[in-house]
Design a protein around this nucleic acid. Sequence first.
DNA 1: ACCAAACTCAAGTAGTCTATTGAATAGTAA
DNA 2: TTACTATTCAATAGACTACTTGAGTTTGGT
Lengths: 223, 223
Amino acid sequence: MGRSDKEHLFQLIAQVAQAIANPHRLELLDLLVQAPRSVEQLAIASALSLANASQHLQRLKRAGLVIGERQGTTIRYRLADPGVARLWTELRRVAVSQLAEVDRALDRYRPARRRFPTISVKDVRAGLARGDVVLLDARPALEYEAGHLPGAISIPIDQLPRRLRTLPKNALIVTYCRGAVCVDADEALEQVLASGRRGARLEENVAEWSQAGGRVEHGAVAL
Amino acid sequence: MGRSDKEHLFQLIAQVAQAIANPHRLELLDLLVQAPRSVEQLAIASALSLANASQHLQRLKRAGLVIGERQGTTIRYRLADPGVARLWTELRRVAVSQLAEVDRALDRYRPARRRFPTISVKDVRAGLARGDVVLLDARPALEYEAGHLPGAISIPIDQLPRRLRTLPKNALIVTYCRGAVCVDADEALEQVLASGRRGARLEENVAEWSQAGGRVEHGAVAL
DNA sequence: ACCAAACTCAAGTAGTCTATTGAATAGTAA
DNA sequence: TTACTATTCAATAGACTACTTGAGTTTGGT
């Protein structure tokens, strides 16, 4: 139990940090927080070459952050533990609050984020209980099926233009997506507001909702 | 708001992760979670050369994780935000729970950790309220002064042999130190138990106690 | 048995990170 | 001014990391 044991311990913990110390691997994690996926799906979603995505995923696997399971001919990767989602959330929070540069990058990526109203988890819960809030999940159907907020309806952002008119006129339409580093809910909210409806954005994602004690529903899109 | 803005955003967040992706910088952070210190103090405590410690600290500063303030001739580094301590805690938790290798390294660094009884924050609170628990802070006095659990007494591990007899015989002696990656509380507990007293170790450190809603006391050693 | 699909592996190059050394700077004290 | 202390800076060699390309492996279908 000397210094070399201590160094070894910190060395191992640092290896986990190294695994998340790469922008592409963070994007892969952010995708996997939403839903398990195959290597090819992940490569496409993150605009990586197949071999590159595979290698990044293996690095995450070696660090114990994700698990890859063979399902017939494909390999399905998923988060190894909900703690991994918490780690990613905490990293994002620190980065956003401590580096002004990250805040500026967020403004560039999500130019509308300060213009639009936001709403808290607590107020959404109350609104759902009263029945005067409609929760709109703007993510791809795949992610909605893997887990969504109770009572949320699935309208992937690319389907919203033709399904906008099905939304009630008198409710508050609350949009959400993958969370702080995702624009889908912003774009959905833009269309909602442009249609004359009232709306707000929930900043949290499904993982954060769940961490805040919220129940998560699974299963197919209700039609 | 295209892919390049998204890539830039992930790039910046990854820079924060890179800052913690080094064993020496993690050790520096672990020290700074306990108390602010000068470059020289940090270099000595982490067994780094002065120039090397300085460079690592600057990297942490650039990532917004620590702040360095000139105080006369020395520069005092401290955590930039309590969120940084949470990030380090979360990283440690994920590493310990997901990598069996980390668990083994912990066993080597803290061989007694499974032999000795542990106690939860909740039970310590109750025991303190009843008055049948003595809380022993085994860290250096500097760290005790920067913040300790309410009612804890300071007996740095190197002073324990000669102050052991001042501890009551009939109370439960609960030891704590910097947390999961620190052996001081183990060593203190070993001596406490060897003296025929009852004892237990608190795994949490001051930062985690505080995150769990506990109050933290500041100020000099009570004699 | 053979083929195709979905991944993984190996090797190479360009780029990045680390620790050390010795020099430079900013405050303090005489 | 000068000397001294605490810290930072600059340069460098050696060690890792990332992405690409092309070849290899495993599974399922025909």
